[in-house]
């Protein structure tokens, strides 16, 4: 079977509409709507228990939803419908393999079940598993087991790759390798990648779009390239007389926050764009700055703020960001 990656960027490869999964009183996934387009690397960020893995299992037809629908590569997902699975590669939760089989035999089993001709040599080489090809899986390190699981997902150069925590257990070099591999698949082969992770920095480097999940809900979606716009920035400065500096800045049309022992804080766009003008104004006002920093909220703080605001507003507030609405906490 050949698996043509989708190159029609307009076609949603994944289409999730008002998806929900309840276990008695617990909503593991709650009213999630999202789309992933061809060639995107969509990363789902969330704390443990946020519902990422449940969402991925719903996406792969391993769990039946209690509400909503999922379409993958144009086909409605259900346990009985296998139309899409020939073009989907996946790795869900911890990497696993048949311990008594060698790396090559494990891949052969997957190849047979996927009805693929040929051998597994190519993917073994791509995942740097050649030295371990004839080793039984039970003797592999956690990192190499993860490589084996990734190799199994990549065997057929899928149109859609669904990966749950793909770099778990890998050392920094392995993480960089996998990042390069996924980027290559997306950019050179048009493969769409949908992954979940809790590694914020890793996600920021790789993803083209980021969704943030919390308590089963999608609380924010961002294009990775525009993430900077959503991360808070401020200008922190100190002088020998912060009260006088405060007055000078107000006279120049800035809106500094009240002085604290840590100094003054400015969040005006004008100040952030041209901090040198703030310094000039202070010098001319007779209170030259002794310290001046343009500080940017890091990814972790941004993520926790997004999750935190979702926690404060609660599920009733409807802060989820859905395609076309653009009104979520994350995008606010």
């Amino acid at each position: 079977m050949t698996n043509r990656p989708l190159r029609d960027a307009a076609m949603p490869v994944i289409e999730i509409v008002h998806l929900g999964k309840r276990y008695r009183d617990v909503a593991a996934v709650d009213d999630v709507t999202l789309q992933v387009r061809a060639g995107q690397i969509y990363a789902l960020l969330g704390l443990n228990g946020a519902g990422k893995t449940t969402l991925i299992r719903l996406l792969l037809g391993m769990i039946a939803p209690t509400a909503g629908t999922v379409r993958v590569l144009g086909a409605a997902v259900s346990a009985g419908d296998r139309a899409a699975w020939g073009r989907v590669g996946y790795l869900v939760e911890a990497a696993a393999a048949y311990p008594e089989l060698t790396v090559r035999e494990n891949l052969d089993v997957a190849r047979r079940l996927r009805r693929l001709p040929g051998t597994s040599d190519d993917v073994i080489e791509r995942l740097a598993l050649t030295p371990y090809a004839e080793r039984r899986a039970r003797t592999l390190s956690l990192g190499n087991l993860q490589r084996l699981a990734l190799a199994r997902a990549l065997l057929h150069t899928p149109a859609l790759l669904v990966l749950d925590e793909p770099v778990n257990g890998l050392d920094p070099a392995g993480v960089a390798e996998i990042r390069a591999l996924l980027a290559d698949l997306a950019h050179q082969h048009g493969t769409t990648v949908f992954l979940s992770s809790h590694l914020l920095a890793e996600v920021a480097r790789l993803a083209t779009r980021i969704g943030i999940m919390h308590d089963g809900r999608l609380v924010g979606e961002h294009d990775a390239g525009q993430l900077d716009r959503h991360r808070r920035r401020h200008l922190r400065l100190a002088t020998h007389d912060d009260a006088a500096a405060h007055a000078v800045l107000r006279a120049h049309g800035y809106h500094p926050e009240p002085a604290t022992p840590a100094g003054l804080l400015l969040t005006d766009e004008r100040a952030l764009a041209q901090p040198e003008r703030v310094a000039t104004a202070l010098v001319h006002g007779g209170v030259p700055p002794t310290d001046l920093h343009l500080q940017e909220e890091d990814l972790e703080a941004f993520f926790l703020r997004t999750v935190g605001s979702s926690r404060k507003t609660g599920p009733e507030a409807g802060t989820g960001t859905y395609p076309g609405t653009g009104t979520g906490a994350g995008d606010a």
Binding site: L60, M62, A94, A97
Partner: peptide, 15 residues
Amino acid sequence: SDRTATDLLALPTSR
């Protein structure tokens, strides 16, 4: 027990 069941669930080969 070997956590391999997941790899049998979304394939061209039916369950």
